[in-house]
């Protein structure tokens, strides 16, 4: 690279580099240092030990996993067949996509506020279910585990679906046609061609959706029982930071949050790799 060219590249990238270092790397290091020190600035693991040894706080990890994992699995399992069905395009695709991105764009606070009325004791959902005689008295959808789970599905399903659709519609349709002409059954085509090619997308969508669900905050407060069964890890971090004003503890919780997310993504990647190996070896034999 010529000197002049190098200068151009460097100067035009400089703003982004400054942004990245000062607004992303530096806060991360700052948080890490906060989590590993006490008020006097001495190095300590006390924040982590305190969080993990206090059942009221440590339990938030399990509570959050118990919400995030089912929500992620449900979203992926509902979205997969739908995206598979829609892979070659479908009638009214534009309208459907618009209706699907609406809850994503509106965000969790609006959806939570809407759900409180819509799914409340006098809300339309209960009225409909009562009229259809599916239930005989108003069912409590909100202020419970179920409320948070429903919120995560309403928000997460379109996200996972559109992402999976993006990946599956990128698979060359001639592969499917060729296999079909050669006499392969639909199930066989799915198992041997579509699924392996789709796997990176599924892994990506699963990881991203889990990470979103694991950091659920407004839905857990507004639609759940934030001082009990839905006291998720974000609530613990928020309370330490803004109710007890202890940013050391809050940063330690944020680091633990990040670690759990990382572990989950590693597990997904590991599963994905195994799948690929199996496909590769059995493909070789066939």
């Amino acid at each position: 690279m010529k000197k002049r060219e190098f200068l151009t590249v460097f100067l035009l990238l400089l703003p982004v580099l400054i942004y990245f270092i000062f607004l992303f790397i530096y806060p991360f290091i700052y948080g890490l240092l906060l989590s590993l020190t006490n008020d006097e600035g001495k190095f300590t693991f006390a924040n982590f030990i305190k969080f993990l040894s206090d059942p009221w706080d440590a339990n938030t990890i399990w509570i959050t996993l118990k919400i995030a994992i089912p929500a992620t699995l449900l979203n992926v399992l509902i979205a997969m067949p739908l995206a598979y069905y829609m892979r070659h395009g479908i009638k009214g695709e534009k309208l459907i996509s618009f209706l699907l991105i609406l809850p994503i764009t509106l965000g969790s606070v609006f959806v939570a506020e809407g759900m409180l009325t819509y799914m409340g004791p006098n809300g339309w959902l209960n009225k409909i279910l009562l009229a259809l005689k599916i239930i005989d008295k108003p069912y409590r959808f909100t202020h419970s585990y179920l409320g948070v789970l429903l919120a995560l599905i309403i928000q997460g399903f379109p996200f996972v679906f559109l992402m999976l659709l993006g990946y599956i519609s990128g698979i060359d349709p001639t592969l499917e046609k060729a296999a079909s002409i050669l006499g392969a059954s639909r199930w066989y085509i799915f198992r041997r061609i579509i699924f392996p090619l789709w796997m990176p997308g599924i892994a990506m969508a699963t990881s991203l959706n889990f990470v979103m669900n694991f950091t659920v905050f407004p839905s857990a407060v507004l639609l759940g029982q934030p001082s009990g069964p839905t006291r998720v890890i974000s609530i613990a971090a928020y309370q330490w930071a803004f109710e007890k004003f202890d940013f050391h503890m809050a940063s330690a919780i944020a680091i633990i949050m990040g670690l759990v997310e990382l572990i989950f993504i590693l597990i997904v990647m590991l599963i994905r790799q195994r799948f690929f190996k199996i496909v590769a070896t059995s493909g070789g034999k066939g």
Binding site: Y30, F247, E261
Partner: peptide, 17 residues
């Protein structure tokens, strides 16, 4: 990375800073 990491994770250290 900043697009993939959820805001609640990096938001707390960022707010502290």
């Amino acid at each position: 990375v900043p697009m993939l990491v959820p805001p609640m994770t990096y938001g707390i250290p960022l707010a502290a800073m």
